[in-house]
């Protein structure tokens, strides 16, 4: 475990906690895309199929449980919680996320490291994670007043992706045979999707203004 990987995991964890805290305390999911949250839940469910079969470390198992638990409870909150449900802006969150699932799955069937069930599902989760943020970014662009917590949530997610790239570069130079094109390319695509958001996030931060994305 290197410092980039740890920092990446911690920003990822922080992003999820920020979101859960927002939903739990103010009982509102305004500005949050249910589509993205559902995709993340599917990402974790298909990636962590090995959670009970392969033990890597206590840290690894705990983090997997946290990500599974938090992603499904966020979806539960938005869909089922009496108050949170009311704050969900269904009419703005219109991205057809089903259209992302099939292409990702077909791509995972075609391009993978090994043609086994677990491996294809793992690859599928990587492809899906790369594009899962799209409904959230579209929703952000439509939202007139992006609240601070939502902005910080997306910022932390983007930071997590950036740190993972640094982690891969570090591991490439320090570990023998560390070459993984599938996670690298999908991870790079994912990080690039945040580039535009980051630009406006830093601009608003620099000018001490509220974050607003151009339509």
């Amino acid at each position: 475990m290197n410092i980039f990987r740890l920092a990446g995991d911690m920003t990822h964890l922080a992003s999820v906690l920020v979101l859960l805290l927002k939903i739990h305390t103010i009982k509102s999911c305004a500005g949050i895309s249910l589509k993205t949250q559902e995709l993340f839940a599917i990402v974790f469910a298909s990636r962590y199929l090995d959670i009970f079969t392969d033990f890597i470390s206590l840290y690894n198992t705990l983090m997997k449980l946290i990500f599974l638990g938090s992603s499904f409870s966020i979806v539960w909150y938005i869909r089922r919680h009496k108050l949170v449900r009311r704050s969900y802006d269904k009419d703005q969150d219109t991205f057809r996320h089903y259209f992302l699932l099939l292409p990702c799955f077909i791509l995972a069937l075609l391009i993978n490291e090994k043609f086994t069930f677990k491996e294809v599902m793992w690859t599928f989760s990587l492809y899906l994670e790369a594009v899962a943020i799209l409904p959230q970014l579209v929703l952000l662009q439509r939202t007139k007043n992006i609240d601070n917590l939502t902005g910080q949530y997306v910022f932390l997610l983007g930071a997590y992706r950036g740190l993972y790239i640094l982690n891969w570069i570090y591991r490439y130079f320090t570990e023998p045979h560390y070459v993984h094109w599938i996670p690298w390319i999908s991870g790079l695509v994912q990080t690039l999707l945040y580039a535009d958001f980051f630009y406006y996030y830093f601009e608003s931060w620099k000018n001490n203004k509220k974050l607003q994305l151009p339509a």
Binding site: R5, D9, H12, D50, D54, I56, S57, N60, M63, K64, F67, E113, K114, E119, W122, Y164, N167, E175, H177, Y178, V179, H180, P183
Partner: peptide, 10 residues
């Protein structure tokens, strides 16, 4: 195995 070192990532 060359695949498994990646599986320690989350």
């Amino acid at each position: 195995c060359f695949q498994d070192d990646q599986k320690d990532e989350l």
